[in-house]
Design a protein around this nucleic acid. Sequence first.
DNA 1: CATGGGATTGACT
DNA 2: GTCAATCCCATGC
Length: 212
Amino acid sequence: MATATSRRRGRASRRGLPASFYDRPVLEVARDLVGCVVQHGPTSGVIVETEAYHDSEPACHAFVGITRRTKTLFGEPGRAYVYRSYGVHALLNAVCEPEGVGAAVLIRALEPRRGLDLMRERRGLSASTRMNGAADRALCSGPGKLTQALGIELSDNDTDLAAGPIVIRERPSEWSDPEIVHGPRVGITKAIELPWRFCAAGSRYLSRAPRH
DNA sequence: CATGGGATTGACT
DNA sequence: GTCAATCCCATGC
């Protein structure tokens, strides 16, 4: 007779990484998230680029303390922090470290995995670009692109990354031990010296190539 | 209540 | 390489 747990799990767990995965130093989580899978409905991709943010440094939204905007960042680890960037794009972060610390990992790029047709539709890529790899690289190669491709919106802010609707899962077997390179974060004007960006070495799906 | 600034992207010179 | 779009929110009067 099936237990409640086995019924809930099924063949493979539908839930994502537990809160304990995120309740650690944000630099560790940023590195460990490379190779993990982000899924939203029928679309998913492997994380190939992340950045860490922490309330101790001025590039982080949480640097100003707890406000309406940063409440999620200071909240429970393992939730999504989604905010609007430049009035245009929704950016996805995973909240880290204990409640009371403002820290998160920005998901900056994915290698598309499932639901590519829907991603192309949401991204407005024409049928003529469907058959070449350059178009696939354009689907999720940036923090604003990947939320558009996966249909992630501001209303997903503060949702549980283990229960969904956005779910982040452990690395699939072919990503069990990725080579990771790190360097400075992209697109910020403060704390530019911190090498808090993490990339899957050699991935074709990054937002920009790491500096040599 | 007015203002200014973005963890970006795509179009254009 | 430059630059505008566009909106949420923190800050200051």
